[in-house]
Design a protein around this nucleic acid. Structure first.
Lengths: 244, 244
DNA sequence: CGTGTAGTTGATGCTCCTCAATTTTTGTGG
DNA sequence: CCACAAAAATTGAGGAGCATCAACTACACG
């Protein structure tokens, strides 16, 4: 038990502060006293596919992944991006309803789903933790819906960046491609690219590497304002200045 | 116990078939053996406000409600519409993170939140039910996110109608105003109105009352097709025919 | 009968998508 | 290390779809 607590602490305070996001987290694994195994994945590797039997639950030690659903007609919908400390892979169904894929080289710990369920069945405290965790995940998902109801691309992107900032703290290292962000926000990659350029021109963000992947937020108040009302920002594709 | 089971059965098979949607349902109340009280609300009455202390959990016997969140700047985001059999009001937080309001005259049963939590703490089976329920609610919320990533108004409206159809079965009696649908789908009420007109012109749906609230789906396959790809449907505001 | 509310329809402009060209970055093999 | 090809990101032009503003209709209620 103390072993896992130590890891949990290291995870939470070491590199990044993270509001836990999904139905599984460090505390749960610790409370269930499950044996875990370490696994590694390379870029673009699939951790599990949609419809596959659900055997393990996972917690991320290092790297980033994306969680998505396949839709009728070859399309997919990216539900969220996962970072160290986040957990995934636990559902009621015995088969996965989503799929998870690595964005960078990844190290995860995996525990048997069956063992977790068995532990929860005889342990009301653990069940309660699971419920808490699912509730928080639900709140996160509804937050996401609210984000997607925002009508302007700038609003959505600003909210997305602020959320990442809160989770990753400080310098944001985007592990995903433009097209992933676009899919997640219900936009196109061209629009994402244009909005990034616009935010950079206005000195609200800055990319600090040549890959345009590592960025800092230079003017968070302005970004927060854009997140709630982008009406004095949104200009079209061209470079004309803001409306008066 | 058998009392509640009877109600649960009546609820599930009597009037409408409903995939349970929120963190609370009939089965949970029955398993927890909670005392309930009956409450009634009139149109537009608030069941609870955002930020209010969380005292009860609720199950709907009759009528329809809407659940929403207030956002910075007087805006609100409608998370979902609730119908008989659906439950609401249970969260981890001791204060409500959302608000619930009646769309029609409503009868609900309420149970004390504290009693439910107490029951869950000593009862692993109940905790597990709560977790299952939260997981299903999570799946629903992620479904909703996926809907909102669809780029065309027609896609979103079609998915919305198909979802209502699955929940209400048969004739759909819309308890909400156009503006509620619009908010929920991230569109404007004018667009909703125009899309309804278009669907009606194409004989995909039909309104069977003069208030334009009660409708039947006349061509479900076509509606399902539009839900996954509206590219051969979307024409602008004007009445011009579909693209070739 | 007015008055108010919900819904529909129309005209216009803005935002974002589409398609395409260009630039930048990444990966591969000599 | 450089040359080359492939992939990712950016930028541009034009058009599609939705929002906005406004007028209009239908119904509800006193």
């Amino acid at each position: 038990l103390s072993h896992f607590c130590a890891i949990a602490h290291a995870q939470r305070f070491d590199r990044r502060r993270i509001p836990l996001l999904t139905t599984i987290n460090e505390t749960i694994l610790a409370a269930a006293r499950l044996k875990t195994i370490n696994l590694q994945y390379g870029v673009d590797d699939t951790v599990y596919a949609q419809g596959a039997p659900s055997q393990f639950v996972y917690i991320i030690d290092e790297g980033a992944l994306l969680r998505f659903k396949l839709l009728p007609g070859w399309r997919k919908s990216i539900l969220q991006f996962l970072f160290p400390g986040d957990g995934f892979g636990f559902e009621i169904s015995r088969y996965h309803l989503d799929a998870v894929q690595a964005l960078t080289p990844v190290r995860v710990r995996a525990a048997r789903r069956g063992a977790l369920i068995a532990a929860a069945t005889s342990n009301a405290g653990l069940s309660k933790l699971l419920f808490n965790s699912a509730s928080r995940a639900l709140a996160t998902a509804e937050e996401q819906s609210t984000l997607l109801r925002g009508r302007h691309a700038t609003e959505r992107l600003a909210l997305f960046l602020l959320d990442l900032d809160a989770r990753l703290h400080g310098q944001i290292d985007l592990p995903m491609r433009r097209k992933h962000i676009a899919n997640h926000l219900g936009l196109t990659e061209e629009t994402i690219s244009r909005k990034f350029s616009a935010l950079q021109r206005l000195k609200i963000i800055r990319f600090v590497d040549d890959r345009q992947r590592r960025m800092v937020i230079r003017d968070k108040p302005r970004l927060q304002q854009l997140a709630s009302d982008a009406s004095d920002f949104d200009y079209s594709n061209t470079l004309k200045r803001r409306k008066t």
